[in-house]
Amino acid sequence: MGVEQKLGEMGAVTTTLEQAMNWGRTRAMWPMLFGLACCAIEMMAAQSAHYDMSRFGMELMRPSPRQADLMIVAGRVSRKMAPVLRHLFDQMAEPKWVIAMGDCASCGGVFNNYAVVQGVDEIVPVDIYVSGCPPRPEALIGGVMALYEKVEAEKIKAAA
C-alpha cells in the first residue's frame, strides 16, 4: 500500500479526526441497489466489468436501505413511487447522501406531466445532480467522485 514505507519505524500517523472520518466514509460508501428506469441500466453498466465502479470502494450494492449510505436515484420518479422513495430514504442510517442520476431525477427531464415528480429534490435532499439522459457510466462515476470531494470537506457538527 505504500503506507509502510511512509511510516518507517514510527508506526503512527497524525491527522485530524475530521480527515480520518471523512476518509473512511468515502472509501467504503455503499450505494443502495435502487433501480427505477433507464438510468438503472447504466448504473448496472457502471458496476460491471467494463467500467468497474468498485475501484472506488463501491462494489457492494445493498438492496436494504438499512445497510446503505448512498441513494442513487436512477430514473424518473412517478407520483406513485414518490412516497415509497421517501420511505426508503427515511430508513437509511445517518450519515446518508443522495445522488440524482439523470435528467428525470434532477428536474423531470422530458416528462413534464402529471405522472412524474419534477425533480427528486422535492422529496429528498440531493447532494449531487448528474446530467444526461441517461448519463454515461463515466458520468455517474464522475458524480460519485464529486460527492467524495464534498464529503471530504465536511465538518464535524456538534450534536444537536
Binding site: L36, A37, R76, K80, V84, N113
Partner: peptide, 11 residues
Amino acid sequence: IGYLHTGIEKN
C-alpha cells in the same frame, strides 16, 4: 404495477 407510470401516452 404503476410505480414507473410516466404518462408517455398523454405527453
